[in-house]
Simulated assay, not measured.
Amino acid sequence: MMVPERRYSWLRLLLKYRGTALPRMFGRLLFTTLLAAAVTVTDLKFGFFHPDLTTIPFTLVGLSLGIFLGFRNNTSYDRFWEGRKLWGALVNTTRNLTRQILTLVGQQPGAGSNGVPEVDPEALETFRREMVHRLIAYVHCFRMHLRDQDRLDELSPMLTATEIESLQGETNRPVAILQSMGYRFRDAWQRGWIHPQHLPILEQSLTALTDIQGGCERIKNTPIPLSYTSLIHQIVAIYCFALPFGIVKSVGYLTPIVVCIVAYAFFGLDAIGDEIENPFGMDANDLPLSGLSRMIEVNLRQRLGETDLPPLLKPKHGLLT
């Protein structure tokens, strides 16, 4: 999912809730603020906390923690941006392969003579449509593969029931679809529908799709090391929970407000890093893979001259899936 780009006024952006880090951290932020309020009331009423505890340790830890959070968020955003670039490459590669199918697969020079059979126009049109539809099925299957979804019935408009059944036992279904496309290109070459010099071009496009898929799988299957993420979470929690004890003597009754602001910053940065670490999920700011898949489908089916097309996906409740 993704919050679509639009121009918000300064005030609306300031007050926006959906699509921000606040829903992910609201519980811990509320707990920290209530804790700060309890510490403040206790100290003001009973003078419970020692006056020698200063803000210096929190200043030193806060500086280091901000650097660590910045580094982690940069790493998470690098993963997010690489995922977007890979899906941009997927869009271009599918368009290129569709153009190659429609222009390079057909009757070759010399057909009808020298033993080269003529191509049946109807059979050729069926083959081209089948291959483009299989390519669209690959895109949808790849999206489901990245999101760990098992919804093969969505491929029924593009694949036959036999092909869908054959995918049931596959551990990597997108690769299986690419394999079947490779077999079909080989069959077309053997039938004389593809020039020997054009077959490597089609194979190169299939290889590019495999490389794109491998890059996305690398991002999905190699998260930021758990020890690093866990340490950041622990330090943020300890810092925010301990902060009111360190500033109550100097800040007084304003302690809950100060703690809430500081905790919002640290919890927010921590939550953002968690959210965009895996850009292929269903969080508010993850990549809109369903929208990209639908756009690819519409683009490719238009190249076939089809007019009964599904609509492009629109944001729902401010979010694009």
Rank of each mutant, 00 (worst) to 15 (best):
V119H: 00
L269K: 13
S293Q: 03
P200F: 09
P223D: 10
L313Y: 01
I238V: 15
T321C: 07
L155S: 13
K16I: 07
P225F: 10
V39G: 10
F245T: 13
Q197A: 04
L312P: 09
A123S: 13
Q107S: 05
L102G: 12
P23C: 01
F142L: 15
V132Y: 04
L202N: 09
F142S: 12
C240T: 00
Y253K: 10
M158L: 15
I212E: 02
H133E: 08
G215W: 03
L309S: 08
P157Q: 05
G83W: 04
A137E: 02
A242D: 05
D187G: 01
V175A: 13
E125F: 00
R99H: 09
R99T: 03
T42Q: 11
M144D: 14
V3H: 06
R129D: 05
V258R: 04
T162C: 04
E130R: 07
V139S: 12
G252C: 02
L320R: 07
A89S: 11
S156W: 05
H195E: 10
T75E: 14
L199P: 04
T93V: 10
E165M: 08
L53P: 10
T321I: 13
D283N: 13
L304H: 01
D211I: 09
S180G: 05
T103G: 02
S166I: 02
M144F: 02
